[in-house]
């Protein structure tokens, strides 16, 4: 007997997963964010509490700042490496690539604590909290930037570069007019993979910033933990969600241009 699944049936496992672990929790967050803790009624008060607290807003700004810094540094390090790896004819480049991904297989708390000891060894640990935090974030999220960049670049049609050379483009023009626009999808997915987690990964800021750096993820954790204010915590989580939404709009915009570039710009 052969088992036959229709497309509808195949979609069931994931939709179950999605409803249980994505949709329902999200509904809970929305419910809590708009609920008054003491009366149980509907309120915007939790958002008001967040936006009227200058420390909370500063924390949000610092988180965005750290996230931007981390993303930029990751991009600056990852792009050349991904480019060189994808371009080179080096036979063992898969081994090299694996070396970049290898750290991901080791528990990240372990790696961050190792980095903490290293920073102590070179005497930086208690002197540069912000630097250490960004360093830890870059260390942790770099593979997430390299991988999408590498896959986009390796898939790129090499003949396009030859064509550019044929048409008189020098190396720099070829890069800015051909390679870079074509790798935009990789850049965008790299940015989304790095930017958002960086804003909430408070284990790194706590371990390497020694509790001197508070990011928005820590604030949410505090609300659900010692502060026991799930309402405010949910509201902050929704604010973060809104920020993701905004950045998704940017991402969508990039995709448009990329499609345009592939469809009309080149042919």
């Amino acid at each position: 007997m052969t088992l036959r699944f229709s497309r509808k049936q195949l979609i069931i496992p994931y939709s179950l997963f999605m409803v249980l672990f994505v949709v329902i929790p999200l509904l809970f967050i929305v419910y809590y964010a708009f609920t008054d803790g003491s009366t149980g009624g509907f309120t915007f008060g939790n958002f008001l509490k967040f936006f009227s607290n200058s420390t909370s807003l500063s924390t949000l700004i610092i988180s965005i700042g750290i996230a931007i810094l981390t993303t930029v540094v990751c991009l600056l390090i990852a792009y050349p490496i991904a480019y060189i790896l994808a371009r080179s004819n080096f036979k063992k480049k898969n081994v090299l690539l694996m070396l970049f991904v290898l750290p991901m297989w080791i528990n990240f708390v372990l790696r961050i604590n190792a980095l903490r000891e290293f920073l102590d060894l070179i005497g930086l640990l208690n002197k540069a909290h912000l630097f250490n935090t960004v360093l830890g974030m870059v260390y942790d999220f770099l593979p997430f930037m390299i991988l999408p960049l590498y896959t986009t670049l390796i898939k790129m049609d090499k003949s396009l570069i030859e064509a550019s050379a044929d048409l008189g483009g020098n190396a720099f023009t070829t890069f800015t007019k051909v390679t870079l626009p074509l790798s935009l999808p990789g850049i965008v997915s790299g940015i989304t993979m790095v930017f958002m987690p960086t804003m909430t990964n408070y284990v790194i800021s706590d371990t390497l910033g020694l509790g001197h750096i508070t990011i928005i993820g820590k604030l949410i954790e505090d609300c659900f933990g010692s502060r026991n204010d799930w309402y405010l915590g949910s509201a902050i989580a929704l604010v973060l969600l809104f920020i993701i939404f905004i950045s998704m709009l940017f991402t969508g915009g990039f995709k448009d241009e990329e499609n345009g570039a592939r469809g009309a710009g080149i042919w």
Binding site: N53, L57, I61, L219, D222
Partner: peptide, 25 residues
């Protein structure tokens, strides 16, 4: 007490700085 603790743990930019940054964004 929690607000006090948030102030201790976090950094507090002057209000105008916050307005300028959020406005710029």
């Amino acid at each position: 007490v929690n607000l006090m603790w948030e102030n201790v743990k976090g950094t507090q930019f002057p209000v105008w700085v916050i307005f300028v940054i959020i406005g710029a964004i």
